[in-house]
């Protein structure tokens, strides 16, 4: 009951914040509503038992990305340009297209019977979420009788309670204690994420170089440029 209440509160905050971001014309207020919306998403993550992710969302998004954007707002919001108004016509067109898009999404996502689909899937090797367990999880939030051993139930329970940090960390090293890879064989359903974990660091390095290059002032005079197309 309390979970439902929390869900609806944060869901409304998330959606309301997002709508407010669209509706507001002042960029500073937009930034505020963005913080509200993204913060509520973090709360939703907690509700989904993804504690680490929720924390990361708060730290990286609300603490990092949005601050970056606010910096951008401050650097560019000089004088009359703080509020650049969208003309009403464009707003109406945008709204109409948005509503149509939402209809498309809702009509195709909203009525899917996820339980039935999962039921048709082949079972993951030693996955704690077999089709049966899902229905039961729906029914009573219980993981008992999941048809698996005690150890696995523990593991699943740990996951359901949101303590996923250790597992996430291990999966970044290419290890998946939550699934038995040896018996999974060719199925290979539970990859470790060693490669992306490492390669993202290269990506971040490159991206920061690029961002720094674009942001810093050119030290030489512009007139010396070889190319003058403008």
């Amino acid at each position: 009951m309390i979970e439902q209440l929390l869900f609806y509160t944060f869901a409304i905050l998330t959606c309301g914040g997002a709508v407010a971001v669209v509706a507001t014309q002042n960029v500073v207020r937009m930034a505020f509503w963005l913080v509200v919306s993204l913060g509520s998403v973090a709360a939703l993550f907690f509700l989904l038992h993804a504690d680490f992710l929720g924390a990361a969302q708060l730290l990286i998004y609300v603490g990092g990305t949005v601050v970056l954007l606010v910096f951008g707002v401050m650097l560019t919001a000089s004088g009359p340009y703080t509020t650049i108004k969208t003309s009403p016509a464009e707003g109406i067109i945008g709204g109409a297209v948005g509503l149509m898009l939402l209809m498309v999404l809702v009509s195709s996502i909203g009525s899917v019977d996820w339980g039935a689909i999962s039921g048709r899937l082949p079972a993951s090797p030693e996955s704690p979420f077999t089709a049966d367990s899902i229905r039961e999880a729906h029914a009573e939030e219980s993981l008992v009788n999941a048809g698996s051993t005690k150890a696995k139930t523990d593991l699943a329970a740990v996951q359901q309670q949101g303590r996923t940090v250790r597992q996430l960390g291990l999966s970044f090293l290419g290890l998946r204690p939550d699934r038995n890879l040896k018996e999974g064989g060719a199925n290979g359903l539970a990859p470790g994420y060693f490669l992306p974990f490492e390669i993202v660091s290269v990506h971040l390095l490159v991206v920061l170089i690029g961002a720094a290059y674009l942001a810093r002032a050119k030290r030489r005079a512009v007139s010396e440029d070889r190319v003058s197309l403008d």
Binding site: H203, V206, V207, G210, A211, D225
Partner: peptide, 12 residues
């Protein structure tokens, strides 16, 4: 993402 930055490489 690096392509975006390269597109704007002539930043002046």
């Amino acid at each position: 993402v690096p392509s975006y930055a390269m597109t704007g490489f002539l930043k002046g």
